[in-house]
Structures are given as structure tokens and as C-alpha cells.
Computed example of a mutant assay.
Amino acid sequence: MSPFAPDLWLVDGPAVTGAAGFRFPTRMAVVRLPDGGGLWVWSPVALTPEVRAAIDALGPVRHLVAPNALHHMFLAEWAAFWPDAVVHAAPGLTEAVARTTLHRTLGDAPDPAWAGTLDQVIVRGNRIATEVVFFHAASATILVTDLVQQIPQDWYRGWRSVVARLDLMTAPVPSVPRKFRLATTDRAAAREGVRRILDWPAERLVIAHGAPLEAGARDALDRAFGWLMR
């Protein structure tokens, strides 16, 4: 666990394997809510003893967040270890897939438990996944899971390296993968969500599959979503 901004920490988890044997780096964010609100955990990674110890040193876990229907792999083990935590899921994720109880569905307005600390917006119109993007106001940090990626260019080998390069998964700058672009069948709905994201006064950017940016978040997102907003 490493501090990224005041009351915001990042944890890099082990790689996970997806479709066609593609392995993905994982990253989770932890926000300490004010006034004893406990910890807000975004896109939980594998719950190792080291991660449990680091989390317990910060405070009680009150909220577990699955920001899209693809980021649920470790949700059940976190919910089992912290049974008092409220589990929040993006539209499209089911309890059968998550293998745990989902208490609330994320919307365009922040939950009262974190309103004023975190803002959020749903990016709709994509056939792969409906993603909820968050903004941590105090640190001017945007949190994105799959819509924007920048996996290291040497991460894959062989034909997967070629596919990842053509898909823009391993582009030299944070980019929306081509498969997500092609899966955006309702561009008007997607633009509405992205417009709100670009209105946030962002400085930092945290992506689940790529290195975080400590500056230049707004410019990076302008470039990443240029294909959609033109």
C-alpha cells in the first residue's frame, strides 16, 4: 500500500487472467472518509495477509465498490472478511456473478455516506461494461477502471503483444481501448457521462490497468476521449 494523496492510498495487486489468456495488472484505491466514516475501497484486489494488515492499520472498511461488472473477482472475499461493509455495485453486476450480496447499485449521484468527499458519474452506452467513474475532490483525483488503460508496453509477449498494441491497451499514453470504442453503441449516452468527467477540476488520474498520473489528468483524459467528443 502506498499513499497517493491525503486520505487516498493505492494498492497494486497480483495480475489476473481474463479472456483469451490475457493477464491484467490490478490496482485498488482506498479512501478514508471524514468524520469517522471508515474506509471506502474501490476495485478490491486479492486479499492477502499483507493487504489485510495494511487496511486494518488505516481503519474499518465501511464500503466496498465494484465500479463495473468486470471488477468483482475479489469482492466476495472482502465482503466475507468485513461483513459489516456495504457492497456497492455498478449497474449490470449480479449477485450470481459477484458471488456475494450486493447491497446497493451505484448511480449518477454519490451515496450519502461519501457525498462531499467523492463525486461519481455513470458512463453508459457500452456493450462491454457500464462503468462508474469517481472523483476524489480533496486530491483532485479521478478513478477509472477499464475505460482508460495504459498497460506497460512489455507486459505481453507474442501474439498477445500485437493484439494489445493494436487495441491500444499498451499505448504510450492513457487510451480508451479500441474494443471499448467499438462497443460504444450509444455515443450520445457515453458523451453525456464523459462530459461530466471532463468538467471535474482533475489533476491526478488513477487507472486500474496502468500507472497513475500525479499531474496532467485533464489533458490525458481529453486525449483519451477525443475520438468520442469530437
Rank of each mutant, 00 (worst) to 15 (best):
I151L: 06
E77L: 08
T141I: 07
R178W: 07
L58G: 12
A15H: 08
E95C: 10
A215D: 11
Q149K: 10
M1Y: 11
G92K: 06
V163L: 07
I128H: 08
V121R: 02
H63A: 03
G92M: 01
R204G: 07
F135A: 10
R127D: 09
P91Y: 04
L39P: 15
W155L: 08
S2M: 07
V11F: 11
L182P: 09
R99K: 13
R27T: 10
L166H: 11
P110S: 04
A76P: 11
G18I: 10
T130F: 02
D186F: 11
L182K: 10
D84Y: 09
V30A: 07
A85V: 01
L221H: 01
H63E: 02
V144C: 13
P83W: 03
E214K: 12
V11T: 14
N126D: 05
V148W: 00
D167H: 05
S161D: 05
A66V: 04
P60I: 01
D219M: 04
L198G: 12
M1A: 15
E192C: 11
A69Y: 00
T26G: 10
E131L: 08
V41S: 10
M28C: 13
S43P: 12
P83I: 02
P83S: 04
E203P: 15
A190R: 00
V51W: 09
P14K: 02
D167Q: 13
V51H: 10
H71K: 10
W114R: 05
A211H: 08
G36Q: 02
R52S: 11
P91L: 01
V87D: 00
V11R: 07
R127P: 05
A66R: 02
A53R: 13
I55H: 08
L58P: 13
A137G: 13
R196A: 11
S2L: 07
T48D: 02
I151F: 06
Q153R: 15
R196N: 06
T130A: 07
W155V: 14
P201F: 03
L58V: 12
T48W: 04
P212A: 04
P177F: 02
E214D: 13
W227F: 13
D186M: 05
V148T: 12
A217K: 00
W42S: 12
T130R: 11
A164M: 05
F22D: 04
L182A: 14
L10P: 15
A69I: 06
M28L: 10
A79Q: 02
G193I: 05
R124P: 11
V16W: 01
F24K: 06
A208R: 00
A79C: 04
A54R: 12
I197H: 08
S161C: 06
P6E: 03
D56T: 15
W78M: 04
R52I: 01
V148E: 00
L47M: 07
R124D: 11
P6M: 02
L228R: 00
A57S: 14
R195G: 14
W159P: 15
L70R: 02
A113C: 09
L198R: 08
R195L: 06
F180A: 09
F180K: 03
T17P: 09
I207T: 02
M229E: 04
